[in-house]
Amino acid sequence: MKLSWWKWLTILLLLYTVVVGMLSEVPRLAILNETIRNLYFHVPMWFGMILILLVSVVYSVKYLRNPLSRNDIIAYESAKVGILFGVLGIVTGMEWARFTWGEFWSNDPKQNASAIGLLIYFAYLILRGSFQDHQQRARISAVYNIFAFAALIPLLFILPRLTDSLHPGNGGNPGFNSYDLDSRLRVVFYPAVIGWTLLGIWVVHLRTRLEVLKQRFYENA
């Protein structure tokens, strides 16, 4: 099969994540038990979301500097994939919270902040849909996208740390807790983050090409 090297890398890393992530030895901790393996599947959703939304912001800035429709398309498609990752992150977090914290939604600062962050991005999609003019839509949504990303970072990484949160790595404790930093976990966690993020980039790549094709098709027709 003729696939570019980074797509092979994606496949390899994801297979590695699933197989080694399920079979390798992990720290034995109360309450967490085997759910500590969610570190390989739930956490990379958020890391992937941030990285893909960063791509989106970069292309929004690029669009404002150089208004090519390609820049706008990449910004929009990566924002959509980033939001998909965020939704998967919040759903997997809720599933896990039900069995470790007791409730699907316990109004934890981390949960509330990530929900607000996602709502900000849902508004981006609605904003885009409310313009008739292509250039106006691209320009205003690019500006909004920059503000949305700037609001997302403190919501996810700063505010939950200022109060008490049930979420691992929060509640006045920056970064990962000592048990998250276990080297046995890292061996799978970092490849998992790269793998899942590359999967998102792959989808962005496909959707962008499809959108470009669509535009060219309508120009010719």
């Binding site: 090297w5 092979w8 890398l9 390899l12 080694v20 079979l23 390798s24 030895e25």
Partner: peptide
């Protein structure tokens, strides 16, 4: 050709990484 080399490198890298994980689960086996 370069892609094949990259793949080979990756495979050895992944194998190297997974080796300690299996070694740790060895006593359990």
């Amino acid at each position: 050709k370069m892609h094949k080399w990259l793949l080979m490198l990756l495979l050895t890298w992944a194998a190297g990484f997974s080796a300690p994980a299996y070694a740790q689960s060895a006593p359990e086996q």
